[in-house]
Write a protein that binds this DNA or RNA. Structure first.
Lengths: 153, 153
DNA sequence: TACTAAATGAGAACCATTCCAAAGTAATGC
DNA sequence: GCATTACTTTGGAATGGTTCTCATTTAGTA
């Protein structure tokens, strides 16, 4: 169960986005805010078994799609066939393991400048009216480097 | 039909990657090299109707997956539910229209430095052994800006 | 030319996601 | 507080892109 602080924060987020506050939305958003495990729909369903025992998959999909539309959440593919979701409270990007699918959040000072420049350049060159971006970096996670007997020194 | 130059080039690419040269692979790769229309499997099947009338979808999927594994081709999602493919001969990234799904290739001088820095920073922070990246920028394409009556001045 | 491992093709199977209709519920105004 | 109404949730069916299976064909090699 998410903390009171998280419950208050997420309640406010829903209201700010003029989203009708249902228990399902509130609890799912709180889960995403307090877990950065990049869950799938199934992961969320399992994790919320106690709080929302009767929730349908459709509801989770609907809810997540709504959050994505509102740019609260981003979708990620790691090659395992299902979509992963990540609360996008602060700017970051993802490193995805090409062997095991592990996703980690990454950011560094100066990243937002990089992002900004990429968007500006894109607007300039393509004429698109930019609304966002996704960056992903692929490679082997430390664990898989060991597992596969690869050294990186 | 792709030009002789393209056919020679793609033949060499297949050999360089130690891929068995089948007519299907050769023709599909030549199509991708000479068309930057970000086709789906269906688009490819339709386009190659004359040259490969009996090709199965499985073969196209197999072939494209092989090319992706060899980093010759990248996969793209534009929200229409199917995967799009793009020959990745020279470094670039994609701008994707959130309204109509149109995908355009973008690059600019200095982009490869940006890319390189992102990968280096990621390796440093995450410990991943980096093998590649994908960047995408989202927004409204010029046509959709007009269609939706939005001005950007 | 014969051999072997790999690729192809047709269709079945898979399964994540969306769709649908009925029932339930949050927000609004009185 | 209560009725109204539009939006949300459910759960099951339907969808459809992608993978799987396996018999057949074929590319590369000796």
């Amino acid at each position: 169960m998410a903390s009171n602080a998280v419950m208050e924060e997420t309640l406010q987020v829903l209201k700010d986005h003029k989203l009708r506050v249902t228990p399902q939305r509130h609890i799912i958003l709180a889960y995403l805010v307090s877990h950065h495990n990049h869950p799938t729909v199934e992961t969320i369903r399992d994790a919320l078994g106690k709080e929302l025992p009767n929730i349908g998959s459709s509801t989770i999909y609907n809810t997540l799609n709504t959050f994505v539309d509102h740019h609260l959440v981003v979708e990620l593919q790691n090659g395992d066939g299902s979509t992963h979701y990540d609360y996008f409270g602060s700017p970051h990007y993802h490193a995805i393991c090409t062997n095991c699918g592990r996703i980690v959040d990454v950011t560094y000072p100066g990243f937002s400048d990089t992002e900004k420049r990429l968007e500006e350049k894109t607007a300039e060159i393509s004429g698109y009216m930019i609304s966002g971006n996704h960056m992903e970096v692929y490679g082997l996670c430390p664990e898989c480097q060991i597992k596969l007997g690869i050294k990186n020194d």
